[in-house]
Design a protein around this nucleic acid. Structure first.
Lengths: 353, 353
DNA sequence: GCTGGCACTCCTAAAGGTGGAGTGCTAAGA
DNA sequence: TCTTAGCACTCCACCTTTAGGAGTGCCAGC
């Protein structure tokens, strides 16, 4: 494992090898590599260089008389230093923008982004949705639906709307509901969800005499909703079926485990959260992610923002043999566009007259 | 193809054969069938009867010296007349009910039902969500978020809440928004979504003089939302990965096509809609559904209701070789429970004091 | 240090061979 | 007339063998 720096020639060779392997999915032999990359030296020379690269742990042979295949280390070197940036013109950004119109429902945008990622990469797209607990509580509204049913609507600062129907103990007039909401909002608006939830619990435990009666009702009803509103699905996945097309995942066992991972979502979730903390585009190659279920895969992820603050992560999951430069560009631009579409004070609003 | 009625004995044999095939997934031979079902006649006799059944098109041999496998016709006869009802005690209905609590967000309930179906059947669960166009519009609310952003909230009679942020041309005070909403609701409440949408288009085309200014604004803002609010995902699918476990779907081509069908959703959607019109539990075996993509599958579907009116369908998709009696019971009970959870005036409300 | 040549390895695909599970048919028994 | 045991036959699934090819490693010459 002599960590001698690569010569320019061996770098070039490694790059050509990985690129060919990414396209063909077959171990790359010396002869075909010479032909494919029109190298000016002979197969025998290539074999010598390959032997060096193998010694360095960058490539390996599946067996004695097969060609070479990149190792995780090889991919890592490749994405770190050998990638040629994808010309972004090739990806029609217009098309992307059309799919992610500004000022839409956040949930809709997130699902659209996930679908977009999977469609254009032909891999699985995944979006970590913003956590509600940390997002800001903007406003609450009580609507009377019928005698004993009140619709409670919560609005987050991100523009998300959550709702739940509750059945309060007594009947309230629309005016009462309105006033209760006003009182509630004036106290709690602007604080984080988690913060409000805790405050409500405390308020309920405290002496109820100290609170105005209507406010007490508001707190009770709000608590019912804050406590119960499900976090919803924290992960939006699409295009899993695309992975069926890859022969390297034809191993039924592996495939099943991978799909179960998509279903369980726990590993992916942790990975994306971890990536959110770091910021910037993250690439996890094979076992680098540290999750066994994702071992045969690579993940390319990028955080996205709302009003300049990172709130979630999106990315692509595919076999280690993926077209990294293309995927990276796509993930990058999608993250930017999603951020733009989710950000409210965007300069490109439609009705700024 | 002599359509002589089956003798009780051949019926019994067919039933045993299909039941064994459902469990084992392997062609059933005469000897093993005798042993398994402890029949009181010999393998030779069974062979004779099998030959008859084959002539009637109820079973077939994959090849000369293999056992017999049910045909679609065989399955059809089986589910029509030979099924022994699954004792419902076996499925713990309590568990189901816990997963589908009343008075929850409809979207949540629908996703929970889909997940429930797939988990307990180990197949793919699918729910057709109610169509918005036909559902009733209950009430609309304008909330001022910031200077130029207004949150428009639509509430359906089913208790669903839709929302979108718009940027109106001029600024409105909260009081104005309140009044505009009141005016709007007094005119349009109770009509179907599609109806309201059409009315709005007409109102906008007509002479604006005839309308009060604030009402005009309300109509404009409402139109922006009614026109643009996406229908959302009409189909909730879960547990697709369960299908990977079935060897009969190991054909990569078929599997890919099936997964694409789940993604495209068009065929499944048509099938479920068709099933909704008929009402009652529907079973589509293999090609009976008429959709090529679903040809290797069977679908068991049942409609569900809100307030006594059928609004959608749910079901299970799996290989033709599925445990029909079990699946039918599960689909049935899930449809009932979902109906109950979605129905508002349910007798089992929690706070009816 | 590069290259052609050569022996060697090992996979893949096709071609045989074998055993078992299962069938259809026939003829004898109830 | 229905049932059953027996038997020859079929065909798959599995294994082994064989040949072919792609590729390597190494050596010797340039």
């Amino acid at each position: 494992m002599s960590m001698v720096a690569l010569t320019p020639r061996s770098e070039r060779l490694l790059k050509a090898l990985i690129e060919q392997y990414i396209v063909e999915g077959q171990p790359v032999g010396s002869r075909s590599l010479v032909k494919q990359a029109s190298l000016e030296f002979s197969p025998a020379t290539v074999r010598n260089i390959m032997a060096d690269l193998e010694e360095m742990g960058l490539i390996r042979s599946p067996h004695t008389s097969a060609g070479r295949v990149p190792t995780e280390l090889g991919y890592r070197l490749f994405v770190n230093t050998l990638l040629t940036a994808q010309p972004l013109e090739m990806i029609n950004i217009r098309d992307f923008e059309e799919q992610l119109p500004s000022h839409q429902d956040p949930q809709f945008l997130i699902e659209a982004a996930s679908g977009l990622l999977s469609q254009v990469t032909k891999l699985a797209g995944v979006v970590r949705v913003p956590r509600r607990a940390h997002s800001g509580f903007l406003q609450l509204e009580f609507l009377s639906l019928s005698a004993h049913r009140v619709l409670v609507i919560l609005v987050t600062q991100e523009g998300q709307v959550l709702n739940r129907v509750i059945q309060p103990k007594r009947r309230y007039s629309p005016a009462e509901l309105q006033e209760a909401a006003n009182m509630f909002n004036s106290v709690y608006a602007g604080r984080s969800f988690e913060d409000v939830r805790r405050s409500l619990v405390r308020a309920l435990e405290q002496d109820s005499e100290a609170m105005q009666k209507l406010m007490r009702s508001a707190v009770e009803m709000a608590h019912e909703v804050f406590g119960e509103v499900a976090e919803g699905d924290p992960l939006v996945v699409s295009g899993e079926a695309n992975l069926l097309a890859f022969p390297e995942l034809s191993d039924r066992e592996k495939l099943k485990r991978l799909f179960d991972a998509f279903n369980a979502k726990q590993d992916l979730l942790s990975l994306l959260d971890q990536s959110m903390a770091v910021g910037g585009i993250q690439i996890f190659i094979g076992g680098e992610s540290g999750y066994e279920s994702l071992e045969p895969c690579s993940v390319v992820a990028a955080p996205y923002e709302v009003d300049g603050k990172i709130v979630g992560t999106l990315g692509v999951v595919g076999p280690t043999r993926m077209s990294y430069n293309r995927v990276i560009s796509i993930v990058d631009v999608t993250a930017r566009l999603l951020s733009g579409a989710l950000t409210h004070n965007a300069g490109h609003g439609t009705n700024e007259a």
